[in-house]
Design a protein around this nucleic acid. Structure first.
Length: 872
RNA sequence: GGACGUUUAGCUCAGCUGGUAGAGCAUUCGCUUGACGUGCGAAGGGUCAGCGGUUCAAGUCCGUUAACGUCCACCA
């Protein structure tokens, strides 16, 4: 006996040790070998504030499967890892820490604050990376990057200045989404809309000339403080005479005009709308068209500002209650209706976003969007599944300019300096000495930083060294596959696409593989607030990383959500254990110093059958991987290993091993060969257990993860033997089935008389029937005349078991009768087809031929069944 | 308002380019079978959401309806 494995696979004893051995071997490192074809995946950089969740686990498992497979195929496979500085999230985290210490961002000042932030990053920023390692991720850690590191920052500055010089970045006063809690602007993509129950307040604004009043409806009465007009539809007969007149704003007393604008929907409310340019994006547009003043009524933290002493300092909701009360007292409130409406919230903190007019930096999107759309239209980049192209196009086609400045400190500071003298904007890569307009030296840098996504947009090339012309950049760009969830297409994929096309002249990847969300067992989204999140590390701890990976890969089709449950992981764990025990059996039968696996000589039918099945598996699994059908590939591996290799071939091999001699040697050789190669096929999915087993088997090379990926081998294709085996297996199954039906204990053996046209095949399978079908012996012939037997009919054989005493003749007759009816029904279905002239004429010949054979087989079966019934 | 997805065995889901429905779990029956009870052998269970169409042939393609879900837009 060579080596003894434990009876049960224990991932805890294996995983960390194996991972360390891979690191020690430097196996994850992509050499940048010009002789090899590169295959590149850049990781979607997790936030440094992040904790590994199921979404990460899925995303990274898929990437690791792909990169391990490509690496084994001989590509110069690079999986480039890194993390994102996550400006808002990190600031929130640090703010909380500072609050606990009784201090604040402003108290510390920018410099000391940033020191703290970096400290925080050093302390916690690597946590998620360590967690990724637990999954077995084969990232090239030597190339690990951070969006705020020197190189990435250089890329950011380069891009900013380039786009500014091209006129694609500008600074201007616009209405933007403002988060009153994060105290920063956010982009359109960062706003989440949710339905909320609210009210529609009907208000009455009196006309200045005393001739009447104008009624209007609003969901936000408190913004009345900032009203600078009332608008009606120009085609609205009701208000025709009002346009151009002046109304008096209740509570405030401001005189504001009535304007006509197409924006107003006559059907809604009263057909008149209050216009608050400072606090509503649509109103802002109306304001621009009519030259209305912009009156801001709120502070940055969404409180009423000092211009309105009565309400000053109240937050927007308190002010709303107060203002409604006052309006009512003044008689300006006509009625209140219930009204559900969509409210924009900050995707980071869920606070209701406040539209706000302010000076910000923007990227002009239209010139960038076009080429990015083209890159997908012309096939340079494709989405898997393809339907996500639509989402991509839709977003880019209706894109608005991207607000990129953030009122935060943790991030890339905007490389713009304002001249204290002439006010000119100086955008430069380095701090300028003097103003380029007036030459004076008093310059102040813009205090804002850039949207986190501005730097992640450059990730596929900034991480490879851009803007420098590096070897890595030349070799690994464009990358191959981007793996990410559909929830991040707008934030990230779109921005990487237009950035890559703009700055590199090439789209950043050829394939975008989109996966869905991992939901809980009830199909709910996993979330912190629901508390239904499942911690992947707990799963790893309990079942092993391989079981987790296997679960995530199985039954997961691109783009679709999946449910996660412990039962599924248990099934995966059981599979790992099954494989482990198969290996254990094989090792128990191997001697010392066995040579590396190769196909032995003197193959039996069973040997050829399993080799041929394995060979097909290798071809099919590869094809599935190429099509990104990882779930199908892994399903096939599961089925082959469990149902084909373990349940059949190992049982058959036991027979040969017991026989000893050459048969035993050959069978052992085949066992090792097939197992060893199957381990390779399974390795990308279950890297740890496959490595552990592979190492204990005779092998060539240091590690399974660098062993060559199995390819289809024509010399292992044995169609005839496959057919022969399947014939015998069908009969074995049928006999087992009958015995089970009749409750024959396994210990009760019986002779089998097998009538068949394939006499040699069955005669050679006697031991198989003895071991697997409860046969004492078999006799094979063309036909038998026997009394009092149980008979079993398959398409290719009729089996008699002399066990008449065990059964009731009448039950047997009924059973056979039932089978006969079934067969006749089948036959008539097939004959119906064959009698259909258009089927015979139009269906492919092979299909027709198959049906003819089918008919012949069923006819044979019917004949045998009739004979059996007659005998009873 | 627009777009998309899902609907297949009791549950969770596969089913690629159309050729007589599959898996895991659950259920039932039988097994100290020399790798594994995290196992072995077997069984039951589906008019593939409804309707219409294309085709010799439809779970698979087209149209339509319904339920559920998601995204986008948004009228105060």
């Amino acid at each position: 006996m060579r080596k003894e494995l434990e009876k049960q696979y224990d991932p805890k004893r294996v995983e960390d040790r194996i991972y360390q051995s891979w690191l020690d071997g430097n196996y994850f490192h992509a050499a940048n070998d010009p002789q090899k074809t590169p295959y590149t995946i850049v990781i979607p950089p997790p936030n440094i504030t992040g904790q590994l969740h199921m979404g990460h686990a899925l995303d990274n498992t898929l990437q690791d499967i792909i990169i391990r497979w490509r690496r084994m195929q001989g590509y110069d496979a690079l999986w480039l890892p890194g993390t994102d500085h996550a400006s808002i999230a990190t600031e929130a985290r640090i703010a909380a820490t500072l609050r606990a210490e009784g201090t604040s961002k402003n108290e510390l000042g920018r410099e000391r604050y940033l020191e703290r932030a970096w400290q925080w990053k050093e302390q916690y920023g690597g946590r998620i990376v360590e967690q990724l390692k637990k999954l077995g991720s084969s990232c090239d850690w030597e190339r690990e990057r951070f969006t705020l590191d020197e190189g990435c920052s250089k890329a950011v500055t380069e891009v900013f200045t380039r786009l500014y010089d091209k006129g694609l970045i500008y600074r201007g006063e616009r209405i933007i989404n403002w988060c009153p809690s994060c105290l920063t602007s956010i982009s359109d993509a960062e706003v989440e809309y949710e339905d909320q129950a609210g009210h529609l307040w009907h208000l009455r604004y009196p006309l200045k000339d005393g001739t009447g009043h104008l009624d209007l409806a609003t969901t936000r009465p408190e913004t009345l403080l900032g009203d600078t007009a009332v608008a009606v539809n120009p085609g609205d007969e009701r208000y025709k005479d009002m346009v151009g007149k002046t109304v008096i704003l209740p509570l405030v007393g401001r005189e504001i005009p009535v304007v006509a604008d197409d924006y107003v929907d006559m059907e809604f409310g009263t057909g008149a709308v209050k216009i608050t340019p400072a606090h509503d994006p649509n109103d802002f547009e109306v304001g621009l068209r009519h030259n209305l003043p912009v009156v801001c009524a709120m502070t940055d933290d969404a409180k009423i500002n000092g211009d309105y002493p009565k309400y000053a300092g109240m937050d927007r909701y308190a002010a709303r209650r107060e203002i409604v009360k006052d309006l009512e007292a003044e008689g300006a409130l006509i009625k209140v209706e219930d009204h559900a409406h969509n409210v924009g919230t900050c995707s980071r903190c869920k606070t209701t976003v406040e539209p706000k007019v302010s000076v910000q930096w923007f990227v002009k999107m239209e010139p960038l969007a076009g080429p990015a759309i083209d890159a997908v239209k012309n096939g340079e980049t494709r989405f898997v599944p393809q339907r996500f192209e639509k989402i991509y196009f839709n977003w880019l086609e209706s894109i608005r300019d991207w607000c990129i400045s953030r009122q935060l400190w943790w991030g890339h500071r905007i490389p713009a300096w304002y001249c204290d003298g002439c006010g000119a904007i100086n955008v430069a890569k380095e701090t300028p000495e003097s103003c380029r307009e007036c030459g004076c030296a008093d310059l102040t840098q813009d205090p804002d930083t850039l949207d986190t996504w501005f730097s992640s947009a450059l990730w596929p090339f900034s991480t490879l060294g851009w803007p420098d012309d590096t070897d890595d950049l030349r070799h690994f760009y464009p990358t191959n596959t981007l793996v990410t969830g559909y929830d991040i297409i707008f934030f990230w994929v779109v921005r990487m696409m237009f950035s890559g096309v703009e700055h590199m002249g090439k789209a950043p990847f050829d394939t975008v593989l989109i996966h869905g969300l991992v939901r809980d067992a009830q199909g709910r989204k996993m979330s912190k607030s629901l508390g239904n999140g499942i911690d992947p590390l707990e799963i790893v701890d309990k079942y092993g990383a391989d079981a987790l990976r296997f679960t995530l890969a199985t039954g997961n089709s691109p783009g679709n959500d999946m449910r996660f449950s412990d039962e599924k992981v248990e099934a995966s764990r059981n599979f790992a254990n099954k494989l482990w025990n198969a290996a254990r059996f094989i090792l128990m039968n191997l001697g010392e110093n066995e040579p590396a696996p190769r196909v032995p000589t003197g193959l039996s039918t069973a040997d050829k059958w399993i080799l041929s099945r394995y060979n097909t598996l290798a071809a099919e699994a590869t094809e599935n991987l190429e099509r990104f059908e990882l779930g199908i590939a892994v399903q096939k591996l599961y089925e082959f290993i469990w149902d084909v290799f373990c349940d059949w071939y190992i049982e058959l091999a036991k027979i040969s091993i017991q026989q000893g001699g050459d048969a035993a040697v050959t069978a052992k050789g085949v066992l090792v060969y097939v197992l060893s190669n199957t381990l390779k096929l399974l390795h990308p999915f279950m890297p740890f257990i496959t490595e552990e087993i592979w190492q204990t088997l005779p092998h060539e090379g240091e590690t399974v993860m660098l062993s060559p990926w199995p390819v289809y081998d024509g010399s292992l294709h044995f169609a005839e033997e496959e057919a022969e085996m399947e014939r015998v297996m069908a009969v074995v199954r049928a006999v087992r089935n009958r015995r089970a039906e009749m409750n024959v204990p396994p210990s009760k053996k019986a002779k089998l008389y097998i009538a068949t046209a394939y006499r040699e095949t069955f005669a050679a399978a006697e031991t198989m029937f003895q071991k697997l079908a409860g046969a004492s012996e078999i006799e094979v012939g063309g036909a038998f005349e026997l009394d009092s037997t149980v008979s079993i009919v398959t398409n290719e054989a009729k089996v008699y078991i002399p066990m008449g005493e065990l059964i009731d003749l009448e039950t047997e007759r009924l059973r056979l009768q039932k089978e006969l009816e079934k067969a006749e029904k089948e036959l008539s279905a097939v004959q119906g087809k064959l009698n259909n002239e258009s089927f015979v004429a139009k269906a492919p010949e092979a299909v027709v031929a198959a049906q003819r054979e089918n008919a012949a087989r069923i006819e044979g079966k019917i004949g045998m069944l009739k004979e059996s019934i007659a005998k009873l």
